[in-house]
């Protein structure tokens, strides 16, 4: 365990590297999945195809993918672009299904009433369907976040600096403390990301916690109404 005490700055540096790689991947996975998930949900014919394709994609072993991608993209093996695209593809594979499921979970009564009110197709999507798909999107994003943080350790094998380097290096040099540092910091990042995502969700979707919270909010006229 001496190793940890002597290498705190290095642990900090690798942790930041790890965050720098994973945070954009999680964001990109989300942004790219929204239109794909929309297509999957919008047209019955595309739903099966898109969802099975994304499912199959997730089954591709990660190492060969990271080796093959530079050949296809023309980037270097250790280029951050290669790593970002590879990880994002896995993120999308997970997130597309959540997006499609989330959009499908929106009550058709609500979308119909929104249409009847005079929402145009695009405003209905952005202002009604996407927000209401939020809870399912959030659940999906939490999985993507954890999966990305853990998967990003693999790219250390390519020599890209992440917490995964502590695994390869620790195994090679037989330093148990180094391996432990990598494991613990990976879990810490995953937990912190999860907390951030959940808090963002609470902030952006106040209605999801309203049913219990606001009724008993103190200082207001509390006329408790039984939900029908």
């Amino acid at each position: 365990m001496n190793w940890i005490g002597n290498n705190l700055p290095l642990i900090g540096e690798r942790t930041l590297d790890h965050i720098a790689i994973t945070a954009p991947v999680i964001l990109l996975s989300f942004l790219i999945s929204v239109p794909i998930g929309w297509v999957a949900n919008r047209f019955t014919a595309s739903r099966g195809i898109v969802l099975s394709a994304s499912g199959v994609f997730y089954a591709i072993p990660s190492l060969p993918l990271f080796v093959a991608l530079p050949v296809i993209l023309g980037t270097g093996l250790r280029s951050p672009v290669n790593v970002t695209i590879g990880l994002t593809l896995y993120g999308i594979a997970l997130m597309v299904r959540s997006t499609a499921d989330g959009l499908a979970s929106v009550d058709p009564d609500v979308t119909q009433s929104a249409t009847a009110m005079g929402f145009s197709d695009s405003s209905r999507f952005w202002r009604v369907e996407l927000p209401l798909a939020g809870p399912v999107l959030l659940a999906g994003l939490r999985v993507v976040s954890v999966s990305t943080v853990s998967l990003a350790t693999v790219v250390a094998v390519l020599g890209v600096p992440t917490l995964g380097l502590f695994f390869t290096d620790g195994v090679e040099r037989n330093i148990l403390g180094e391996i432990w540092a990598g494991i613990v910091m990976t879990i810490v990042i995953a937990l912190v990301f999860d907390v951030i995502i959940v808090q963002l969700g609470r902030l952006l979707m106040p209605w999801t916690r309203s049913s219990s919270a606001a009724v008993s909010r103190p200082g207001r006229r509390t006329r408790v109404v039984a939900p029908v």
């Binding site: 009564d109 609500v110 119909q112 927000p131 939020g134």
Partner: peptide
């Protein structure tokens, strides 16, 4: 047209968010 006509439906169809 829809914005000029009031519409009330079963189960109210309110926007839950």
């Amino acid at each position: 047209l829809r914005r000029s006509i009031g519409y009330v439906m079963q189960n109210s169809g309110l926007l839950p968010h």
